[in-house]
Amino acid sequence: MIPVSFDYQRPSTVDEAVQALSAAGDDGKVLAGGQSLIPMLRLRLSAPSVLIDLGALADLRGIREDGDGLLIGAMTRHADVLANPLVRRYVPLLAQATATVADRQVRHLGTLGGSLAHADPAGDLPAVAVALDATMEIAGPDGQRTVPAGDFFVDYLTTALGPADVLLGVRFPSHEGWGTHYEKFQRMAQAWALVGVAATVRRENGTIAEARVALTNMGPVPVRARAVEDALTGAASTADAIAAAAGLAGEGTRPTSDLTASAEYRAHLATVLTGRAVSAAAGVG
């Protein structure tokens, strides 16, 4: 369809972007890769009066080492995340999950920041950010601030970003030495997840010393599977122990029933996929 008409601005600094958003009040929208926003405009599910395109902010694009980890600019495209050797070294989980996002065309336009800011419960990268303990760098009318991934996702399509905030980048602590895996289950090869599981595991002497498990699409925001994590922590790195822990994956989740899957089926998938994700991360089976 054809979007409602809107104004278009392309600021050349972050400050200008924040000012433009402030001026627009609740009526402005940031445009990143447009892969979620444009379809919403075309279906007239969203009708902002002004789009503020971050495409000219070169500082928001790129990946660099930063302390004990990586800082990835919000405007970095999925394809650039995928191709980056630092990502493969420090946070291979992010590369693995990004490879499952949509198709080649979408990955060449869509951005990491856009995926997180959009916060679609079926999106793959929010759960990955949670499992990797990422933090969000945000600029707003009151200056810059940092929000941990666990606090960033507030509700369905809602984040800690205010109407005049710009997500600048995402900081990922290094997971060198961890085992990680993203297990995605989708109906179509290039589709959104029915359920996804991001698992990270640190092993010491045949036991699991630390584990983080985050679930995609098991509620309005990514869900930390804390019961699973607790059961894994200190457990032997064996198929039986992992299976027992995975059985707890449904705890604390609020899956929906929709056209693609019932809540009951999602809950079932969560346990199966958690078992598979943790096993792969722990190198078991």
Binding site: D103, R187, M188, A189, Q190, A191, W192, L259, T260
Partner: peptide, 11 residues
């Protein structure tokens, strides 16, 4: 086409 899901070559 997100909901009516014709297969792509990958399917």
């Amino acid at each position: 086409f997100v909901d009516y899901t014709p297969p792509s070559a990958a399917d």
